[in-house]
Design a protein around this nucleic acid. Structure first.
Length: 310
DNA sequence: AATACGGGGGG
DNA sequence: CCCCCAGTATT
């Protein structure tokens, strides 16, 4: 069998990669509040949960409100869940708000109210996966875990592997490659985590990368290959008419009205204009409402009304 | 490995 | 109107 391809091709000058990206970051890093030295580990954790699948610009105002209202895990732990879901507003994937409150309660119970620094302890908290555990450890505590998000995957895919875009899911090989690229020095490693992510967010973007502003343009394997387009066109997530859209519309209605009689859900949601021209069948309404209740995102009261859970 | 899970802003 | 965004949990 053939020898496995090296994690990092010999043509890649890793020290140069580090210097170029860290130098660029020192000049171009955004001034985000969760990057402030004054930001608590809790503030970092909240930001990371909110940033899962949600752009920075949309998170910023919500994050400020949350940190002002619930400045510690203990504060969020005792908040009414209805308040938590209302404050989540339209950030999307509201189960994240539920998991965040559960994580706050777990921090109170298991860690005396302080966000743990240990990656394994972080990973054990509700809603925290491999990425978020590594991000909180690195950004909040200076523990040089390897942080791999969609931005990091894309930058490495292009600059090192010469591919236009990373695959569907993070592979073991990708993870090992990312680990092999980490600077030895812990301080530089933590900066590298943030810097590669920032480069992917601001320059090496998915749709139209700004290679003319990229510190790696001279050495990028993808550019060297002639910037070939992605092999397969990724099919976007279906939206119109899906349960996801209907669930979102029901949540929006309850957020707006506080309570919606279950029998009136279709009328209220349609009147609110949250579905465009789509009109779900009864079976879909029932399925979505039942799912939201089952997920703990909605509660039924004694009079057949739907509210956010207390 | 594939899916479910929100919502919105920019090309 | 399509595509993508600091992912996670489940199957």
């Amino acid at each position: 069998m053939p020898a496995p391809a090296p994690l990092v091709p010999p043509t890649v000058d890793v020290p140069h990669l580090h210097d170029a990206v860290l130098g660029w970051f020192a000049v171009h890093a955004r001034d985000l509040p969760w990057r402030s030295p004054d930001c608590s580990p809790w503030g970092v954790l909240v930001s990371e949960i909110m940033l899962q699948q949600t752009p920075v610009v949309r998170v910023l105002p919500r994050w400020r409100e949350w940190l002002e209202r619930w400045p510690t895990p203990a504060d969020l732990a005792v908040a009414p869940t209805a308040d938590v879901l209302t404050a989540w507003d339209r950030l999307g994937y509201p189960r994240r708000a539920l998991r965040l409150q559960e994580a706050a309660r777990a921090v109170v119970e298991r860690h005396d109210g302080r966000v743990p620094a240990d990656p394994a302890a972080l990973r054990a908290l509700p809603g925290i996966g491999e990425y978020t555990a590594a991000a909180v450890a690195s950004f909040a505590f200076g523990i040089p875990e390897t942080v791999v998000d969609t931005n990091v995957r894309r930058v490495i895919a292009r600059a090192v592997a010469g591919e236009a875009l990373p695959g569907r899911s993070l592979t073991r090989a990708e993870m090992r490659r990312a680990q092999a690229l980490m600077p030895e020095d812990p301080v530089r490693a933590n900066a590298w985590n943030a810097a590669v992510m920032e480069l992917g967010a601001l320059v090496c973007t998915a749709r139209s990368p700004a290679c003319d502003r990229c510190p790696l343009a001279e050495t990028c394997a993808w550019v060297a290959a002639g910037s070939p387009p992605p092999a397969e066109v990724s099919r976007g997530q279906a939206w119109a008419g899906t349960d996801r859209q209907v669930r979102g519309a029901v949540m929006a209605a309850v957020r707006e009205h506080g309570r919606v009689a279950e029998a009136e859900v279709p009328a209220v949601v349609v009147a609110g204009g949250w579905l465009g021209s789509h009109r779900p069948e009864d079976a879909q309404w029932a399925r979505c409402v039942a799912g939201l209740v089952s997920d703990g995102l909605l509660a039924r009261d004694a009079d057949g009304g739907l509210t956010f859970p207390a």
